[in-house]
């Protein structure tokens, strides 16, 4: 798509809000991992940021959100035994995204490869 740069500030503001919500959710889940509906909400939040990041050409952000979305799907299938470690890693990723997302050019040029690799290593989630 072209002419999307003008939506950069809205994209950053909106994504920042959604990632902050995701971070709050992770905090809740760390304290109470049995809240099943919170995993669905986490999946939806990561999915929403992924969708708009793809549209804005922010491939790295879209990719890391896709991995997070898959992790929340995995939680719903009870695929993981190291939940606490995963929550810590997810929280770190959210922190990193928030630190970059106020600047559209910065977020567009961040590939999040280290974060993706770390999440993959912890969860053994494959990127297809």
């Amino acid at each position: 798509m072209t002419n999307l740069e003008k939506y950069g500030p809205l994209f950053c503001q909106n994504s920042q809000k959604l990632i902050a919500k995701l971070q709050d959710l992770i905090k809740i889940l760390r304290e109470n991992p049995s809240r099943k509906n919170a995993y669905q909400e986490g999946q939806r939040l990561a999915h929403t940021v992924k969708g708009s990041a793809e549209m804005m050409g922010c491939r790295g952000l879209a990719e890391v959100c896709r991995v997070m979305e898959n992790i929340f799907i995995g939680f719903q299938k009870e695929s993981f035994k190291n939940e606490k470690e995963i929550f810590v890693a997810l929280n770190e990723v959210c922190e990193l995204i928030i630190s970059k997302i106020s600047d559209f050019k910065k977020i567009k040029n961040t590939n999040f490869q280290k974060s993706i690799s770390k999440l993959q290593k912890i969860t053994l989630t494959e990127i297809s």
Binding site: L4, Y7, L10, F11, N14, T48, G51, S52, M55, M56
Partner: peptide
């Protein structure tokens, strides 16, 4: 559609 950005574009 829940995404504010996509809503605006649409």
């Amino acid at each position: 559609e829940d995404d504010e950005l996509i809503n605006k574009v649409l």
